[in-house]
């Protein structure tokens, strides 16, 4: 029986030697995710009906969802970041959801993937702030209203809390996905262990648990994609509107 962590092993597609340029299962599922997102959006909007069918409503609902998220959190200036946030949301969401299919691979459960996305957001947000406000951007790190005596203490804290953004952004997504998938595998292992000892009766409880966990994982898949994008919007808002 496979161990609970074996699902996270990265290996080249179709066997063969592992190398730095190999087309791995992780890359394959990223490509499949992009294909799925494209199929979802293009297929949904193909008819362009005035009264949308079920598929088109889903495509429109995701569009509206991200649109209102940006409108609420960033405002009008955030409109030009819509493609970025939308791509991010769909990529993470479909990656999470496709990872729930048995025998698939969840690329969002690797911190290198989430860290790359988080650092991209972080660098983008910093550059946006720098281009928009110039050196005035660094006034962010000076807490307003605090006495000057406290500055040597407050400024390092503010800088650390700014630098902790990409870490918390990436760790949250990666840890949630990895923990959930590991837990599902562990409970699946209990099915065999308990079932073999009690003529199959003991296996029922872990199966029920796994069904519940699958539902919970679907919730987490949506939630984490949502949180990632909401935080991206909040960071954008901070950079665009200095307080």
């Amino acid at each position: 029986m496979a161990g609970p962590l074996e699902q996270f092993v990265i290996k080249p597609v179709g066997g063969g030697e592992m190398s730095s340029v190999a087309f791995t299962n992780s890359s394959m599922w990223m490509v499949l995710t992009i294909i799925a997102v494209t199929a979802f959006m293009v297929g949904g909007m193909r008819k362009r009906a005035l009264v949308p069918g079920p598929w088109q409503s889903m495509a429109e609902a995701t569009y509206e969802f991200i649109g209102s998220m940006i409108r609420d959190n960033v405002g009008d200036e955030g409109r030009k970041f819509f493609p970025f946030v939308f791509t991010l949301f769909m990529f993470i969401l479909f990656g999470n959801l496709l990872g729930l299919i048995p025998y698939s691979f969840t690329f969002t459960s690797h911190i290198i993937v989430t860290m790359a996305m988080a650092l991209f957001v972080f660098v983008l947000v910093t550059l946006v702030g720098l281009f928009k406000h110039g050196l005035h951007f660094f006034s962010f790190f000076v807490p307003s209203g605090a006495p000057v005596l406290m500055y040597p203490l407050m400024i390092p804290i503010e800088i650390i809390s700014y630098l902790s953004r990409p870490v918390s952004l990436s760790v949250r997504l990666f840890a949630n996905m990895m923990a959930g998938h590991t837990m599902m595998k562990v409970f699946a292992g209990f099915v065999f262990g308990l079932g073999a000892a009690t003529f199959g009766l003991g296996g029922i409880a872990p199966i029920v648990m796994n069904v519940l966990l699958t539902g919970f994982e679907i919730l987490v898949a949506f939630l984490q994609a949502y949180v990632f994008c909401v935080l991206t919007c909040l960071y954008l808002n901070d950079s665009l509107h200095l307080h």
Partner: peptide, 11 residues
């Protein structure tokens, strides 16, 4: 709740 996590304080 809706504030940024970084440096912004609840005004």
């Amino acid at each position: 709740m809706d504030m940024g996590v970084g440096w912004r304080r609840p005004d």
